[in-house]
Design a protein around this nucleic acid. Structure first.
Length: 791
DNA sequence: ATAGGGTTAG
């Protein structure tokens, strides 16, 4: 408002020339200073001089005086295209892209003005900050019409625009069709690919750039390094490093920081440390990179020490410094440290930074302190999308999928989900087996052009596999141009889940053929597949390759899986021998698996031994008592079986109630054993009775012996017939069209009787029935189950 | 015009 009365601000002086006024504008470093200059401009009669006003407007934007700049422009009688450009850029740089665009439209109404390459470049940059891509695409088309499509400035802006809207293919097409490409254009493509998680592609483009002899600059190197870091491709990163050394910008501050981050992320913390020591005066960002490097390599002490150093050197600590210090990647055992950091943040006020509270929320969630996490989330004054994502993912990881989904729905009223939200919620869908919700998310992915995001597509594969749609998972897998280890792992474990052992092994070999390095998870997926398909020799070989060829140390899960493979195949003695070779003490998972195998092969001696270990290690878990009791029943040793059930009763151990879910038209229906609460209950029981009759004719009889354990003998047959699986299937038969698939999900393992019954039902009704239980998938068709009655 | 560190994810 100080523009209204300017006369008081300036003393009358000698008449200034235009050049003198221009230099005054350049030198003005504060707003009052500039307004004084403005007064002088008016006094000297230069208020309608284009060059002077343009420069003044530019300066006003530099000093973030947006309303003043706007006022100056709108009171100016005849702006030229250059002045328009200044305004369009100014608004765009000051977070008002919509003002830029309306100014651009305003400009188009002046028939005497012709937009130039700067106009388009600035307007397109502004459009990339809008919520919708349409405006940018229109501008792109208009720039082509005006013959500016091949202009380098315009081209860079267009490429950047498409990347910002995840239109990776569009961006690449524009780039490919540019007749001339300079370093900045190449850099823009590399940056865009990295931002869209196309790390491999960005490295490839970098390679093309080198091959074509395009001059690199430090920006090129600084942008491509994070791609190598993210892929943990140390050798690629080192190749880039040596190139930088040859070209003379290895010691550029941006490059150095990128290298520190590269080595840290590839686990070479000592190299990162010595690079850091090379920097004589590290800036804050270099410190941040080093602190976070220590943290993610579990060198918590070094991290804290460096942080203290930053504090002592009177450098201002920023939120990202703290974020790097928070032990997100290695939270275990750091609850106390996390609380201390939180204390520091509260005292210093840094807690109000969303990134800080989000990182703290994550650590609490990873330490299973869900309530502490939720409290932090609730107390955050500004809830960013990342904060919501952190909390939703925390719920998902802690098995609280229903809370995750309701929080997601709450979030949707404020935000539109980003790739992180989508991967998280897909993981919740996978856990729940919520196929139709997952499909809905898939549509969302398509509408947001996020199919090329490797996290998203991998999560989709995982979701489809875990929700029973293995073919859809495979189609997605085949359509992906870029895959990483996790993608392969997801597909392999999907095959394992469905009992397709040979497909899993085939894929594993393909993966090796393509040069991917298998991880511990890869081997677990392969072993799991072997166990579900009864592939003993293959499992054996895989385990040995993992240890001897790939040098991966097996975890308890790997051992348990091997015990499962041997045990299921009836090689119980070998399984026992295998356990004795374990370098770590076998835990409940290992003995539990062995007990399960004893159950299948009716080996009482080893079962007794395994259960003794289990009761000792894990007395609260009721599952083992059930298994042992069942074994005695099979052995016709009913008194012993009953005595074990007594123990369970006396210690008030509760068995997880079995329940089955079926989704019809997107609505979930949950059944428990003997359930009569469903609105279709009468029809369901009538259907079951009809089916049971037909099944008996075909030779079915209830497997009363092993199905039940804590129920009196006379109740057994009655209850077996109303297991939740059967209720859900009967309901599915009633409400779905003939010949359609029926999919159900059981929270525990499907029992033998239900398994047999489902085979009969699939034959009688000519339906494909897909059952997901706690362990795997069973595909029933024409009286046969894909698991070969071996699960 | 492009640029290094940091939060949320498979």
């Amino acid at each position: 408002m100080f523009y209204r009365d300017v006369s008081s601000l300036c003393a009358p002086g000698p008449t200034s020339s235009r050049n003198f006024l221009l230099s005054l504008i350049t030198r003005a470093s504060t707003l009052p200073h500039l307004s004084q200059t403005h007064a002088q401009i008016i006094l000297n009669g230069f208020q309608n001089d284009l060059a002077t006003v343009t420069k003044l407007t530019q300066k006003l934007f530099d000093l973030r005086a947006i309303p003043q700049a706007r006022h100056l422009f709108f009171t100016f009688p005849k702006p030229d295209i250059f002045l328009f450009n200044v305004l369009i850029r100014g608004f765009s740089n000051n977070a008002s892209p919509s003002s830029s665009i309306s100014l651009y439209n305003n400009m188009r109404n002046h028939t005497d003005l012709k937009p130039d390459n700067f106009t388009y470049s600035f307007a397109i940059m502004a459009a990339s900050g809008l919520p919708d891509e349409k405006c940018g695409m229109l501008l792109h088309a208009q720039s082509i019409v005006d013959g500016l499509g091949s202009n380098l400035f315009v081209g860079s802006a267009v490429v950047d625009l498409y990347f910002k809207f995840s239109r990776v293919e569009f961006a690449r097409k524009v780039f490919d069709r540019m007749p001339e490409r300079d370093t900045v254009l190449w850099n823009t493509v590399i940056t865009g690919l990295v931002k869209n998680c196309c790390y491999g592609d960005s490295i490839e483009v970098f390679g093309d750039m080198v091959a074509e002899g395009v001059p690199l600059d430090s920006t090129t190197v600084a942008t491509v390094l994070p791609a190598a870091a993210e892929m943990q491709e140390l050798r690629v990163g080192m190749g880039i490093q040596s190139l930088a050394l040859k070209l003379g910008f290895h010691f550029d501050a941006y490059v150095m920081t990128g290298l520190i981050s590269l080595y840290s992320k590839c686990g070479k913390i000592n190299t990162a440390r010595s690079l850091f020591r090379c920097i004589s005066q590290p800036d804050l960002i270099a410190y941040n990179a080093m602190i976070s490097g220590f943290t993610c390599n579990s060198e918590t002490e070094s991290s804290v020490r460096l942080f203290r150093e930053v504090l002592a050197s009177c450098k201002r600590v920023v939120s990202s410094t703290i974020v790097g210090l928070i032990p997100v990647s290695s939270p275990y055992g750091h609850l106390y440290l996390t609380c201390c950091i939180q204390g520091f943040c509260v005292k210093s006020g840094i807690i109000s930074y969303p990134s800080v509270s989000t990182a703290l929320t994550t650590v609490y969630n990873r330490l299973n302190e869900v309530e502490l996490a939720r409290q932090l989330f609730d107390e955050s004054p500004e809830k960013t999308l990342a904060a919501w994502n952190a909390m939703i993912s925390g719920y998902t990881h802690n098995g609280l999928t229903d809370l995750a989904i309701s929080l997601f729905q709450e979030m949707m009223t404020e935000f539109t989900p980003n790739p992180v939200t989508i991967t998280t919620i897909l993981s919740a869908c996978a856990q729940l087996g919520a196929l139709s919700f997952g499909k809905w998310i898939h549509h969302l992915v398509k509408s947001k052009n996020l199919e090329l995001n490797i996290y998203v597509s991998t999560a989709l594969i995982d979701m489809y596999a875990k929700c029973g749609n293995i073919l859809e998972a495979r189609q997605l897998f085949d359509s992906m141009s870029e895959k990483n280890v996790v993608t392969w792992n997801a597909m392999i474990s999907g095959y394992g889940l469905h009992g397709y052992g040979h497909e899993a092994l085939k894929l594993f070999n393909e993966m090796l053929h393509f040069g991917f390095h298998p991880t511990g998870v890869t081997f677990l997926s392969v072993l799991y597949a072997c166990s579900h398909a009864g592939l003993v020799r293959e499992g054996d070989e895989t385990f040995h390759a993992m240890v001897n060829k790939y040098g991966i140390e097996p975890l308890t899960e790997h051992y348990a899986c091997m015990v499962d493979i041997l045990g299921r195949a009836g090689q119980l003695e070998r399984a026992l021998e295998f356990i004795s070779t374990m370098p770590v003490k076998p835990g409940p998972a290992v003995w539990g698996t062995l007990l399960g195998a004893c159950m299948i092969h009716k080996n009482m001696n080893i079962a007794r031994m395994a259960s003794e270990k289990l009761f000792e290690m894990d007395p609260e878990s009721v599952g083992y008592y059930v298994l042992l009791s069942n074994m005695y029943s099979v052995d016709r040793n009913f008194p012993k079986a009953a005595s074990i059930r007594e123990v369970v009763k006396k210690r008030k151990l509760a068995k997880t109630p079995g329940c089955t879910l079926i989704e019809v038209n997107g609505t979930p229906h949950v059944f428990v054993s003997g359930d009569r609460s469903h609105s279709h209950a009468t029809a369901i029981y009538a259907m079951l009775e009809k089916l049971t009759g037909k099944m008996r004719e075909l030779g079915y009889y209830s497997e009363t012996v092993t199905a039940l354990h804590d129920v009196e003998e006379e109740e057994k047959e009655l209850m077996v017939n109303v297991h939740s699986e059967k209720l859900a299937i009967a309901f599915g038969l009633i409400v779905t069209e003939p010949n359609t698939e029926i999919r159900i999900i059981k929270n525990l393992r499907v029992c033998l009787d239900c398994h047999t019954a489902t085979k009969f039902i699939s034959k009688i009704t000519e339906r494909v029935i897909i059952v997901r239980d706690a362990n795997r998938f069973h595909h029933f068709k024409d009286g046969v189950c894909s698991c070969g009655d071996y699960w």
